[in-house]
């Protein structure tokens, strides 16, 4: 493990990602201290341009809300949605993939057909349907994002299980009389996990983007300060007050970039042989 850490520390892109991610986390933690007021409350005249030295360093949006406050509070929302949705999606994916890969046969067939059924639907369309049916409060949106983004994880886990299930150590476990669940979760899963962890970072980035896309269409929860809501609101004034959409856009870009770089770094650190640019 120390070897992995050292490899991660030597990777400048991964370090940059980590720094950015820590910055976003710091923003989320500092939000209630720096901006104790409700970020959705009326702060001043709408559409004031960003003024770094003034009362509104990032300006106000077309509802007179402080953009800086929304960016900081929005970091909380984005991270929360990212983490919870990713956890849901990875949990479903691992269970489905592990069962399918381990048992094979009709269980595999059944589970993979279901997975493929999900994959044939573009996940954003499915998300729109779920939100239209169950409403758009933040819990529903988060769970819905988790529910639409598990198929890839399931397939990845299944592939890992397929390669691992007939290895000697698994056969040894069988001979020792271990139960299936113990073999799956205690023996095979830890070995199958590294690529899944790396993929989790992709899921997290997608989850943040999906919420923003929903908010852009005014279908996310309007009662919270999310970056996507801000972009959606700014769309109407894009031609003149472009900063209303651009600032949260940059925030989303940097956060997704950070998560992706960290994921890539983890990938290189955990699977050194798969590294894209092996150094001599």
């Amino acid at each position: 493990m120390t070897g992995s850490l050292a490899r991660y520390a030597k990777n400048p892109a991964a370090l940059l990602g980590l720094v950015l991610l820590l910055a976003v986390i710091a923003m989320a933690l500092l939000a209630p201290i720096l901006f104790p007021k409700d970020p959705l409350s009326l702060a001043g005249r709408p559409l004031q341009w960003p003024d770094l030295g003034g009362r509104f360093p990032l300006g106000t949006d077309n509802s007179g809300r402080d953009i800086a406050a929304q960016i900081f509070h929005g970091a909380q929302v984005s991270l929360l949605i990212g983490l919870v949705a990713t956890t849901i999606s990875i949990a479903i994916g691992i269970v489905v993939g592990a069962l399918a890969g381990f048992y094979g046969g009709w269980i595999d067939d059944a589970l993979m057909r279901v997975t493929e059924a999900f994959q044939t639907l573009p996940n954003f369309l499915l998300l729109l349907v779920l939100v239209a049916v169950f409403g758009s409060d933040i819990t529903t949106v988060t769970v819905a994002i988790g529910l639409v983004s598990w198929p890839a994880t399931a397939r990845l886990t299944r592939a890992e299980f397929l390669t691992l299930r007939n290895r000697e150590f698994v056969q040894a476990c069988r001979v020792l009389g271990m139960g299936d669940l113990r073999i799956i979760f205690r023996e095979i899963l830890p070995n199958a996990l590294p690529p899944v962890i790396v993929y989790a970072s992709v899921v997290m980035a997608i989850a943040i983007l999906l919420e923003s896309a929903l908010a852009f269409l005014s279908l996310s929860d309007p009662n919270i300060a999310s970056w996507g809501n801000l972009i959606g609101a700014g769309r109407n004034v894009l031609r003149v007050q472009w900063y209303v959409s651009a600032i949260p856009g940059v925030a989303i870009l940097l956060t997704v970039l950070a998560v992706s770089l960290v994921g890539q770094g983890l990938n290189d650190a955990l699977n050194p042989r798969l590294r894209r640019n092996p150094k001599p």
Binding site: L40, S63, G135, N223
Partner: peptide, 26 residues
Amino acid sequence: GEDVPLLATFIQQSLSQVGIKVDILN
């Protein structure tokens, strides 16, 4: 029109000043 969501937000902001919490249902 786009003024409808803007007004909804403004109503939410205004009523919070007098102690009425408003949840917007989009």
